[in-house]
Design a protein around this nucleic acid. Sequence first.
DNA 1: GACATATTGATAACGATTATCATTATCACA
DNA 2: TGTGATAATGATAATCGTTATCAATATGTC
Lengths: 164, 164
Amino acid sequence: MIIVINMSKKPLTARKNCDCRATRRGARREAVLDVLTSGPGHLSAEEIYRAARKRVPKIGIATVYRALRCLCSCGKAAEFIPADGVARYEPAGSRAHHDHLICTSCGSFLEAVDPEIERLQGRLAARHGFRISSHKLEIYGLCAGCAGTGAARGALRRRARIVE
Amino acid sequence: MIIVINMSKKPLTARKNCDCRATRRGARREAVLDVLTSGPGHLSAEEIYRAARKRVPKIGIATVYRALRCLCSCGKAAEFIPADGVARYEPAGSRAHHDHLICTSCGSFLEAVDPEIERLQGRLAARHGFRISSHKLEIYGLCAGCAGTGAARGALRRRARIVE
DNA sequence: GACATATTGATAACGATTATCATTATCACA
DNA sequence: TGTGATAATGATAATCGTTATCAATATGTC
């Protein structure tokens, strides 16, 4: 009997001592990591693909997905999935855990963390005999820029379609 | 000029005085709501579809999705999307807001709420000039039942595939 | 150089969800 | 009680982000 780990789902634990085989056609994976660390952050795979093609024009979208999975599994990148279900990626490892404030008007992502909230989550879990491995806190609303200036109309327009 | 709200995305605000047209072929939507309120909760659309067919055998999956969207938009149901990206639904309206503790071993969902965490989220957002409209807190880990008893192996097995 | 093997790009496949469309049931009204 | 208007339905095609497949290619080892 052979047990094959189903790699279609990302492994939960990070690989140890993985360099994403940087010396073996590594330009691709280094390019993806480079896009992550030099870009604005919170990019989707598609956006990363477009940026990476400027560095490695022949790179394929499949390779980008493979690189992202590899980078995530060895802790160099982190994935998170907001309410629209499209995965977004950010550099990790050297960066601390944080939560996200997501603007429903302009789509911007703010990073924030409140140590007290983190601590209370542990307390909440303990109250239910639950052993935390990770958590995800996403706050949706209007960012400072959009909250004042006709943001509601902007948000509405984004959800409406003009016919004639 | 006619403005058509794009119904392909669920409206953010609940419809007012919507009875989901209960008197107009309402058996379908009532059946879906009935599955939601009588079932174990946190069901996927597919699971709701299978349960609803026991009540209305000829119901189609598209109608289930339509009913869920309608029920969500008028506040009778609530949708949330965990890390696997598959939407899950629960009855709403009479139920208070809560967060989810999701067991990565057995897949069970616990509901919990900590007023202090809720309050601190407001403070965190205010610190960034952010106006909250909603939030999503999901805590992943092992539930009380799985935390002790060989849960790690169970979780691994769920992610593995037996070949021969 | 020759072979084994990891990586790649193109593309097919996948799965959850949504759109389309002809059909059917219900409503308002005569 | 017809009758037309219209909303709801089921079957199914389409969509879209993501993953699997597979032949081709680049790299490492001997």
